[in-house]
Computed example of a mutant assay.
Amino acid sequence: MTSFARKPDHLISAQVLSGLSGSSPNDLLVADCSFDLQNPGQGYLVYQQAHIPGAIYVHLDRDLCGAKTGGNGRHPLPDRDAFIERVRELGIGNDTQVVAYDNAGGPYAARLWWLLRWIGHGKVAVLDGGLEGWRQAGYETTNGSAGSRRQRTEFSAGASLVRTANFDDVRENIASRRALVIDARAPDRFRGENETIDPVVGHIPDAVNRFFRDNLDAFGFFKHPDQLRAEFATVLGVWNSGQVINQCGSGVTGCHNLLAMEIAGLGDAALYPGSWSEWVAQPGAPVATTTAR
């Protein structure tokens, strides 16, 4: 259950976070992003039952997504200005260190990590091991929802620290092969089996599979950077990380692979936010169901 020391701007241990617990609200914000795709209200109930003292609750659908149109996927990116305003309402200032965690291995926390970097806020990290890691380290939790209320701040967005790709980019890439598309979904869904979320089975042609949970060890902590680097090298082959487009079902677990790549020193990969759920909503978008490579 060892949590290795890593770049503090991407991943933080329970021990380090505990040492920051005396920080002022302006200096530190802990965000509980727990969520359940099958039951969108469950995450807040989990938060109310037990969360890190002082943590606020951040809801995937309400806080980390935009309006659905029927063609932009299950978890579309929020409008940038609207998300900046929501960041202010959450109490995040330009000097605030944000630490995100969840109860599911980190994909929802990674979504907040990525979105904050999208609007230029680099002072954000994901708690290694999440809520369970915090408990295993011997730290207390609290209940209720008092910690979810904070004063509004005057956050000013900066230049984006991440890259994105859209549907047209990914569609064109099938012919040009300028990028390697990595799909973070479970291998069976990637192959076109056991699909329970989206209406079409399969994957984007020529994509390769890297299940986001493979970034974690048996105890739910991120693998050591060297191990992640070696495993992603197998996935990448001749491609470099700057030629990668990460995607998943709806632009959430793809952020987990992006975080793992950053931990491994493989930065500058892009995210296709609409991902599979947007892809299959576009008329004529090609689909593959071949065995994962």
Results as ranks from 00 to 15, higher is better:
C248Y: 05
L258T: 01
N94E: 04
G138A: 07
E231G: 02
K223Q: 07
A179Q: 15
A230P: 14
S176Y: 06
N143F: 04
G138I: 02
W113K: 14
G144T: 15
D79M: 07
E262G: 14
R177P: 00
I56R: 02
V200G: 00
L236Y: 13
G284I: 15
T2D: 00
W276E: 07
R177G: 03
G66E: 05
S18P: 07
G93E: 04
S277Y: 06
A264T: 09
Y57S: 02
N209F: 01
G71Q: 11
Q15I: 05
T153R: 09
A269N: 08
L236C: 13
N173P: 00
L28F: 11
G105C: 08
A218R: 13
A146T: 15
L228W: 10
P187T: 03
G192R: 06
F35D: 09
A31P: 11
R150L: 08
P40I: 03
E154W: 05
G237I: 14
D79I: 11
S23G: 09
V208Y: 02
G138K: 08
A186T: 15
L90T: 10
D206H: 13
I174Y: 01
L28E: 08
A100I: 01
G70P: 09
D206K: 12
A104M: 12
E262W: 10
A157R: 04
D81W: 09
D268Q: 10
Y139F: 12
P187F: 01
W114D: 10
N246H: 12
I52M: 01
G133K: 05
